[in-house]
């Protein structure tokens, strides 16, 4: 197992290299120009743009730019944003805590919804509880977050006036009040994301549990006189976890990457909004850094999932 893990980590290095190459190529080939806003401003002479392009090395061939980016990156220099002329790592670090907090709690919420509801619904298929849970799940993933977000704002901020809908990273309050304010402003974005994610996860959990709950060994466990809870938790859930682990591992990098739509609606200053504004402004160094870290996390968590499969089902062999 340890050797397997090590080997996979070693394989990850060339794959990351390959991914970074593809990412760079896509960004270089994709249409757009970081200085487009200057282009529409008649007072900025064309030479200024040409000068900036030359200064930022945008006129060099893609291959040279890639090598330059890569060598700098290995030395820990992520470059600077063309738009704000601030170092990229600084920009990312500024937004990381908020992202981890908001997206992290939403994923946690999603798990807290999906696991118990999905398991319980599967133990009683087509009961009233199952039907209600399913209906809510269907609503949950048929409505896009851009819609539920605005619905929440209309209900909880505008009609009821309970929650603020503009997320402010620095709140001047202190002590308990500070926590309370943060809780209040994070509630809606976390709920919107968590419910959307939780809705589809519930369906997966339900399906995974249904797959194993009627297997013979579960009947055996029951006939041994084990309590229902023990049966479900110890025998059923562990076996049903493989798809769940897969899905959670797929979703984990998003805790770093943020959620573009929801961040936009609630003005959460997270990595997602940084990424989208950088993409719209063609700010390649920022996009490159965010997506590259993101792909590292994708690889890492998928690898972790692979290792977890072996723990959940020891017969899975690593060869």
């Amino acid at each position: 197992m340890g050797r397997y893990f090590l080997r996979r980590l070693l394989i990850a290095i060339p794959s990351l290299l390959g991914i970074s190459l593809v990412l760079f190529a896509v960004l270089a080939l994709a249409p757009g120009d970081p200085f487009e806003e200057l282009a529409t401003n008649p007072n900025v002479p064309a030479e200024v743009r040409a000068n900036l392009r030359a200064q930022f090395g945008l006129d060099d061939p893609v291959a040279i730019r890639y090598v330059r980016w890569f060598t700098a990156m290995t030395k820990g220099d992520w470059g600077f944003s063309f738009v704000s002329r601030v170092d990229v790592d600084q920009l990312i670090l500024q937004r990381l805590p908020t992202t981890l907090l908001v997206i992290g709690s939403s994923q946690l919420l999603a798990l807290l919804i999906a696991l118990p509801i999905g398991v319980y619904a599967a133990t009683r298929p087509y009961s009233l509880f199952d039907q209600i849970a399913n209906t809510f799940a269907f609503i949950g993933f048929s409505l896009p977050t851009f819609f539920t977000g605005i619905l929440f704002i209309l209900i909880f901020s505008i009609t009821l006036d309970w929650l603020p809908f503009i997320y402010r990273a620095d709140i001047s309050a202190t002590g308990w009040h500070w926590y309370w304010e943060h809780f209040k402003q994070a509630l809606m974005p976390v709920a919107v994301l968590g419910l959307f994610q939780g809705a589809s996860w519930t369906r997966y959990v339900r399906s995974a549990v249904l797959d194993v709950i009627r297997l013979d060994y579960v009947t055996t466990a029951r006939s041994k006189g084990l309590g229902e809870i023990t049966v479900v938790v110890k025998h059923v859930v562990r076996n049903a976890l493989i798809p769940v682990v897969t899905l959670v591992a797929l979703q984990m990098p998003a805790i770093f990457g943020g959620a573009i739509v929801t961040e936009q609606i609630f003005r959460v200053p997270g990595i997602g909004s940084l990424l989208i504004s950088s993409i719209l402004a063609n700010d390649t160094p920022v996009i490159m850094a965010v997506t590259f870290v993101f792909s590292c996390l994708v690889i890492l968590f998928n690898l972790l999932a692979d290792v977890l499969y072996g723990w959940l089902d020891p017969r899975i062999s690593y060869r």
Binding site: I19, L23, L27, I279, I299, N302
Partner: peptide, 12 residues
């Protein structure tokens, strides 16, 4: 799979 998961969708 990992590559597709990590590609930024909008520029692509």
């Amino acid at each position: 799979t990992d590559l597709f998961l990590s590609l930024p969708q909008l520029p692509l």
